[in-house]
């Protein structure tokens, strides 16, 4: 552990990265066909699969003219044997809680578009996250996968007709008659781990095991912070917290992450049907 600490003083980590460098990431969308949108993210050893299903349901009572998002995280036993049965529930609740908080901000997604009939029907997006392999930094990878899956989500258009006072809904069967969700301002979670006296972005499993405390923040493309959470048994100095958020790391890294993700997603969409979806067959 000492080795790792000494490393960081000179901005050089175990695998040669700087303190603010992410590991190599790969994304792929449209992996599962039963869903309205899906994505798979591989961040070194971490493998996460997200599926989004859009269903009609009743809106939340306090927001009658907006759609809803429901997050569900499933830690598969493939990742670690400790997740067998109900072992992974604590971690799952943490991740879904953090994502809920990050997406709670009204500026992120235009949920009004998801409203069909105010007070009665709206689109509910069930976002299901499946953790397939744990290689450190689960929160960041999960948020990236969620954003990619939402980008890929296609919601069928609904026509509302009024027939003698009774509302009738008609969901279009045409696979091309769909609307997409605007995810430009959706947040990504950036986790900063404190190891020794410095903090690093994207901790690997080894680094996570020797970190004292973590600060997770949801950051959007233009630098707005939507959620903040401190985790871990160590304590953080208030100045270092400020440092992490304001001066630099958090915001900068968050913006860069969002930008790279959007570029990659747009690139993939441009390739369109030419690229084969390989999924796990690669």
């Amino acid at each position: 552990m000492y080795f790792v600490c000494f490393f960081l003083k000179d901005n050089c980590r175990e695998d040669g990265r700087g303190c603010e460098d992410y590991r190599h990431m790969e994304i792929e969308t449209n992996v599962v066909s039963n869903t309205s949108g899906s994505a798979r993210v591989r961040l070194a050893n971490t493998d996460i699969l997200v599926g989004v299903k859009a269903e009609l349901g009743a809106p939340a009572p306090e927001k009658p003219d907006k759609g809803r998002l429901e997050f569900f995280v499933d830690c598969s036993a493939n990742a670690t044997p400790e997740f067998e049965g109900r072992g992974g529930e604590e971690l799952a609740t943490e991740i879904s809680g953090m994502l809920n908080r990050a997406y709670d901000c009204p500026a992120c997604l235009d949920l009004q578009k998801l409203c069909v009939i105010p007070n009665q029907q709206c689109w509910v997006l069930y976002i299901d996250i499946l953790l397939l392999e744990c290689g450190g930094n689960l929160f960041d990878a999960a948020s990236i996968a969620v954003k990619a899956a939402l980008y890929n989500t296609k919601i069928p258009t609904v026509t509302v007709s009024r027939d003698e006072g009774i509302m009738e809904l008609e969901i279009s069967d045409d696979p091309y008659d769909v609307q997409k969700i605007e995810v430009k301002l959706a947040p990504c979670i950036v986790t900063l781990s404190k190891i020794g006296h410095s903090h690093v972005v994207d901790a690997s499993q080894k680094e996570e095991s020797c970190c004292l405390a973590r600060l997770m923040m949801g950051v959007t493309q233009n630098g707005t912070i939507t959620a903040l959470k401190k985790e871990g048994s160590g304590s953080l100095d208030p100045t270092s917290v400020e440092d992490m958020i304001e001066v630099g790391t958090g915001k900068r890294v968050g913006e860069a992450l969002n930008k790279s993700l959007t570029t990659a997603l747009e690139e993939e969409e441009r390739q369109g049907t030419k690229s084969k979806t390989l999924g796990f067959l690669r």
Partner: peptide, 14 residues
């Protein structure tokens, strides 16, 4: 500082 995100399909098959 670098964030490197690539599309999975872009990786050449070995």
């Amino acid at each position: 500082m670098s964030v490197d995100i690539r599309i999975a399909g872009a990786r050449e098959s070995t």
